[in-house]
């Protein structure tokens, strides 16, 4: 599948934003979230900025962005529509949570209630995003539980890494260590989920073949000898995108290294230091590596996924 830049940015950015919101709510509930205004403004502001930037960018690849509101209408059948509805509904509790936290009612029950509902809505929104992909039978690489698990783990993981950095910058050493511990646990979980996702791709049997696509399988091996057109068409550009196997392997290694291994080492180091300038620098490195790794992971998620329509263009099994 063609890895559209706007979709990669959208899913990683809003995933990270929702992930931050989840942990802000959890820390608030545990009574660990710092209550000072500058921190609140930066943390909530960044989370909202990531969510909004992601949602806006997701409209860029539309042929008619001005009609985007129409996408809210078909939630009965369409996961894309459900995602839109969930994303908009999530703004209500998340906005109230941020407002309450930063103004009147610091640690009051009302703020916490909005926080918990907001966190649940954030996870629900990430889930609906993952289901857009996981519900497509035409792309077996996506139609499995590991797709959902990947989105649900990587968003909160990314959010945790960002929050760990913010706590380091603001010098909240106590809660920083908690956040680092959470981030480390999620980084380990994340690499396990990705490894299992790739294992699933390797071991699962093909769903459709050139034989079933043409119905000529009973005649033996089916091979394309003439394509309907000489140059690329929409189908080949959008659905036929693929990367060389050797690049896929290299990019998987980059994903594992930057997305997980480097952040685990740097965040682990920062945790041992328990504060100070060096801890901040290590947390920054952890975030930079993690962000690059997740972007690579998302690019691969598209580029590696084969669509069954390629069976009409020379592919043997998908």
């Amino acid at each position: 599948m063609h890895p559209a830049r706007s979709v990669i940015f959208f899913t990683t950015a809003s995933g990270a934003g929702y992930g931050m919101m989840v942990w802000l709510a959890v820390l608030a509930t545990l009574g660990l979230l710092p209550t000072d205004l500058p921190f609140g403004l930066v943390a909530f502001g960044l989370a909202f900025a990531l969510i909004v930037a992601g949602l806006l960018s997701s409209t860029f690849h539309l042929g008619h962005p001005e009609r985007a509101w129409r996408a809210l209408s078909q939630w009965r059948s369409s996961w894309l529509s459900r995602e839109g509805v969930a994303a908009i509904l999530a703004f209500v509790p998340l906005g109230l949570f941020a407002l309450c936290w930063m103004s009147l009612d610091r640690q009051g029950d009302v703020a916490l209630l909005f926080g918990i509902v907001g966190a649940a809505m954030s996870l629900l929104t990430i889930f609906t995003t993952s289901m857009i992909y996981a519900s497509l039978r035409t792309i077996p690489a996506w139609r499995n539980g590991w797709t959902v698990a990947g989105y649900l783990v990587l968003g909160p993981m990314n959010g945790a890494v960002i929050l760990a950095l913010l706590f380091a910058v603001f010098g909240y050493d106590g809660v920083m260590v908690t956040m680092q511990a959470i981030a480390l646990a999620l980084l380990v979980l994340g690499v396990v989920v990705k490894a299992l996702y790739w294992r699933h791709l390797r071991v699962s049997a093909p769903v459709s073949t050139a034989g079933t696509a043409t119905g000529l399988g009973h005649l033996g091996k089916v091979e394309l000898t003439a394509s309907p057109h000489d140059s690329d068409n929409y189908l080949l550009r959008e659905m036929g995108f693929r990367i060389a196997r050797k690049h896929a392997q290299k990019l998987r290694r980059i994903t594992i290294l930057l997305g997980f291994v480097v952040p685990i080492l740097t965040l682990g180091g920062a945790m041992l230091m328990a504060g100070g300038a060096m801890a901040t620098i290590l947390s920054l490195l952890a975030w930079l590596a993690c962000q690059t790794g997740i972007a690579t992971e998302r690019w691969l998620f598209f580029a590696e996924a084969k669509h069954v329509v390629t069976l009409y263009y020379g592919e043997q099994a998908v």
């Binding site: 690849h61 042929g63 008619h64 009609r67 996408a71 189908l235 669509h307 329509v309 009409y312």
Partner: peptide
């Protein structure tokens, strides 16, 4: 139609084609 292309991803037969000009 907002031109989100999701329907073309969902069709196994490549029966939908996006018109870049009309969006």
């Amino acid at each position: 139609c907002i031109g989100c292309k999701l329907c073309s991803w969902a069709c196994p037969y490549g029966a939908r084609e996006y018109d870049e000009h009309a969006g």
